[in-house]
Amino acid sequence: MMKQLSALLPLCVFGMVACQSKPANSDKKTLSDSSSKASTTTEAPAANVAKGPIDKAAIMARKQVPVLCYHQIRDWKATDSKGAKDYIVQIAAFKEHMKMLADSGYHTILPDQLYNYLVNGASLPSKPIMLTFDDTDLDQFTIAAPEMKKYGFKGVFFVMTVSIGRPHYMTKEMIKQLSDAGHVIGSHTWDHHNFKKFQGKDWETQIDKPTKKLEEITGKKITWFAYPFGLWNEQGIPELKKRGFIGAFQLAEKRDPNEPLFTIRRILDSGYWSTKTLSNSIKHSF
């Protein structure tokens, strides 16, 4: 999977504009446009951040919570490559997948809840799951968020700040609206630069400035991070900690027992998957 990610996810930066098919006026839609079939969840408790050393062995021993990762939610086009379709969940399929999760009794949780569970042993709702979205795509706001609202689902949106306000990407106002609606906004660097290559001024460009911008937009502290391409290294984790992050998400590689909170696993909900395949993957991947 890592080879695929390195080859394909650069599509998620500037080239991904060509993979979008949203009309310009679609960004006028708001989260209140869709009717809600389920009451929205109550606000999740904030992370009770440990003051001293954490019990890493205890974290590794706890059952993993399934975490799904999405990029584009749109219908395939003739120009989409076979590999790119892994990262493009078609609209009808996304709606079917959300309904399947709701019908199967899953309850979405947010990162601070996950932290409290892993570090402090706090309880979680039955069949917890986390929905995460990378790269700031407009369709995450216009399609994914309204569909999630039908079931009272909340998600985590990892924002790549270079894209904010560009065609086919979310605006500052949309990001603020997602945050105000109870979703979590996380950092995903400035322009999707490989985390393993960060050095010198990269920390300011890729982490400090984007984090400050997101905090200005949301009015909230940004404490969660997602690695571009899912790639990370142990040398960079102390830099995230120094900047106030309390956890970070990779993709499908094994967690690092020395840094379990900064190597939280996710799996892609592939554009090729049926609801049955997704259900089985959730059950067997975590």
Rank of each mutant, 00 (worst) to 15 (best):
P238D: 09
T263S: 11
H168I: 02
L114G: 00
V162L: 11
I217E: 01
L5Y: 10
F249V: 09
M100L: 14
N120A: 00
R166D: 09
A7W: 11
K95M: 09
D86M: 05
K63D: 05
T161F: 04
R74Y: 03
I164F: 03
M170N: 01
K82M: 10
G121L: 01
E253Y: 02
F133K: 00
Q4R: 14
H284W: 13
M2S: 04
K241D: 03
N116R: 06
E239Q: 10
G236Y: 07
A38G: 11
D55Q: 08
K201E: 11
K172M: 01
K196T: 14
M174A: 03
D75R: 07
A7F: 12
K29L: 13
I129C: 06
T161H: 02
L110S: 09
I222L: 14
F14Q: 02
T40Q: 12
K276L: 14
Q72L: 09
D86S: 09
S34R: 13
V184K: 15
M2E: 06
Y70W: 04
F198K: 01
L178G: 10
S163H: 03
M130A: 12
F262N: 07
T79C: 08
T171P: 01
C69V: 14
D86H: 15
A93R: 09
K213T: 05
T263A: 05
